[in-house]
Design a protein around this nucleic acid. Structure first.
Length: 462
RNA sequence: GUCCCUGUCGUCUAGAGGCCUAGGACAUCGGCCUUUCACGCCGACGACACGAGUUCGAAUCUCGUCGGGGACGCCA
């Protein structure tokens, strides 16, 4: 039997990192097993469900590289089926209508909290056999009263619960919409889902759902409940995928790698390509305890990925960012060479772009600390000599540029730092950049010469 | 309150009774490299929650205690 898993988010308007990991685990398991990964949108009820919110899910998944198989299932389009199944269960005496009002329920629940240790529905309508004409009503599932419910979770192991602690949960609301609890089972059955991989907050629900499967005469799928990710909600903006893509400028491989390793591991391995993740991931290897989110490590993992992915991909991710910065670049050898230079030292895609803008934009001002450290009365002459040496270069290569620098340093008996740092400050605006020869090469001969003279003037006029 | 799950360095984890004086990674601290920043390299610090068992032997098995998380919606 081929593995069929699904990711079933409700469109809340942003992709929470916990959800993203659930999606990743499902996707990895499907790809690892040669199975299928289905996307389902849980949009029963809820005013907040907008198309924009649905689009966020698509965008996040696409960016992460988690492609889904087949059409997307929308719960809102399946109301007839839910009603049909509900009716069948009522006819078989496995579900019943309940016309208790919310107020009555509320009161009973309060009363029960005083006397009993749990607050289940008291079963007022359970044996009434109410017909469709009983007024405003919901449909409840008739939960077994005796014994216990047990299942083997692929991550958590054996999980047991007494039926007496389980409720006659509502399957169909009074407005006719199915509840999550009910719709999941109907849909997972329709989609022939074999493995349900989701967050651990659904563990208790699982017993209800398994009871439903049995009532429908079906075998439940296998369940795997992944632990939660802690430490996200306190940080502003950071729980969503968009934040890591935009504000932090991460590579999807970086986020995926980190998120996969949070709660899952493969020996001492830390860095995985997507392909390696698919090969090595197994849902059984996921840990049981909650994990604490650590942005520092995320950044480090991302840095490693920044050095590993194909340079063309780095280009794809930076093109738009350059455009936003007002720079027009095209994919090609020159850009790849630039990105190779930048990726070795950058921590994010954003940094690759922002730290390389000096190539197009001459410094408007000079960093104060760099100025006081590297500019002095002798500097103008030095920079002008250097400008002349560079002006005389005939073959524009890094070797030639290096030779020019060496010549200046030798003539003046200066250590290279005494030449390179003032030059760097003059050309970049700050005394921090990639190797100075590379920098000069990218800035270009004429522009370098211009900037050197300009800085010399600046120092003289101070 | 009731129920469910969970507990190895600050954090992510390796570990499936002897290989563990507990390994790796991030962070931190120190050093090296170097024309700067960063990278990289080397080193240091640092944990089996606690208490009883079982066993020749326990981080690994059992029970209890304490701690952490979750569920108790006509939300998903």
């Amino acid at each position: 039997m081929t593995v069929r898993v699904r990711f079933a988010p409700s469109p809340t308007g942003f992709m929470h990192l916990g959800n993203a990991r659930t999606a990743l685990f499902n996707w990895l398991y499907a790809r690892h097993m040669g199975g299928q990964f289905i996307l389902r949108i849980e949009d029963t009820d809820r005013e907040r469900h907008t198309e924009a919110a649905v689009q966020v899910i698509y965008d996040s998944l696409k960016w992460m590289g988690l492609n889904w198989d087949g059409p997307v299932l929308r719960q809102s389009e399946r109301l007839a089926i839910y009603h049909e199944v509900a009716q069948k269960l009522i006819d078989e005496g496995k579900a019943y209508r309940c016309n208790c009002t919310r107020e009555e329920l509320e009161a009973k629940k309060e009363a029960m909290k005083e006397t009993a240790n749990h607050a289940c529905y008291d079963g007022t309508c359970r044996e009434k056999n109410l017909g469709p004409d009983c007024g405003t009503h919901v449909v409840r599932f008739k939960m077994p009263k005796e014994g216990e419910s047990t299942f083997e979770d692929m991550i958590q192991g054996t999980i047991t619960k007494n039926y007496k602690d389980l409720d006659d949960f509502i399957m169909v609301r009074s407005d006719g919409m199915p509840t999550y609890q009910f719709a999941v089972v109907v849909d997972d059955l329709a989609l022939q889902i074999t493995h349900v991989i989701r967050g651990a907050d659904h563990i208790d629900n699982t017993h209800c759902q398994i009871a439903l499967y049995h009532a429908l005469g079906k075998e439940p799928p296998r369940f795997a409940h992944a632990p939660r990710i802690d430490g996200l909600s306190k940080r502003k903006g950071s729980p969503s995928v968009e934040y890591y893509r935009e504000a932090l400028g991460l590579l999807p491989e970086g986020l995926n790698n980190y998120i996969a390793r949070l709660g899952w591991s493969h020996g001492d391995d830390e860095i995985f390509s997507m392909q390696e993740l698919i090969e090595k991931f197994d849902i059984c290897d996921v840990n049981r305890a909650n994990g604490e989110f650590d942005e520092e490590k995320l950044k480090w993992v991302n840095e490693q990925q920044l050095r590993l992915v194909p340079i063309e991909e780095i280009a794809d991710h930076t093109l738009e960012r350059y455009e936003k910065a007002g720079i027009k670049v095209e994919k090609g050898e020159w850009l790849y060479k630039l990105l190779e230079m930048m990726r070795k030292r950058a921590h994010s895609l954003n940094e690759i772009v922002s730290d390389s803008l000096f190539i197009w934009n001459a410094p408007q001002t000079y960093d104060e600390a760099s100025v006081s450290k590297h500019f002095n009365a002798d500097t103008p002459a030095l920079l002008e000599d250097l400008a002349n040496a560079i002006q005389n270069i005939t073959d524009w290569s890094e070797t030639a540029i290096e030779a020019a620098f060496n010549e200046i340093a030798a003539n003046r008996s200066l250590k290279m730092g005494k030449v390179a740092q003032p030059a760097r400050t003059a050309i970049v605006g700050i005394a921090q950049s990639p190797g100075i020869y590379e920098v000069v090469w990218f800035v270009g001969k004429d522009e370098t010469v211009r900037r050197l003279h300009k800085a010399a003037e600046f120092i003289k006029n101070r």
